[in-house]
Amino acid sequence: MALNPEFEGRVYPPSSSYVVGREKVREFASGIGDLNPVFHDVEAARALGYLDVVAPPTFAVIISMRASGAVVRDPELGLDYSRVVHGEQRFEYARPIVAGDELVVTTTIESIRTAAGNDMIMTRGDIATVDGEHVVTTRALLVSRGPEGE
């Protein structure tokens, strides 16, 4: 199924804000098996100059995926989500996410293409504080495997 090329370049208004909780950061760090004190212990984080526990680098995906989920499931886009695999993931950091941050995401559909029968869509999430400070930009390549691609 071909993707609707008109979606390329679309920018979606900022999501409702995501407040980064200290316990969520700890839960996520434990979920990846990472016991580094900077992700768990406020004093250890403060010793490095942070206000509160620091989120592991891939934590940003929780926030970007929440925002992009509705976009990529828009029936008008034509992405068969049941066949989607995660092809690539990138993060560019201005600084780490820290507990207490209140963040919003602006989602952009950067590119849409088809190669070897697979539909590919690159989404970008610009994550910033509610005050407008850029924190991290995420990019995810979603690949919908075509029947002939198997």
């Binding site: 580094n36 900077v38 992700f39 490095l48 100059g49 942070y50 620091v54 592991p56 680098p57 891939t58 695999v85 995660h86 092809g87 690539e88 993931q89 990138r90 993060f91 560019e92 950091y93 600084r95 780490p96 990019r139």
Partner: peptide
């Protein structure tokens, strides 16, 4: 674990 401070990470990317 190597750099010690997560704030020293500028970018990180992978293909699956």
């Amino acid at each position: 674990d190597w750099i010690g401070d997560p704030g020293a990470l500028v970018s990180y990317s992978v293909r699956f």
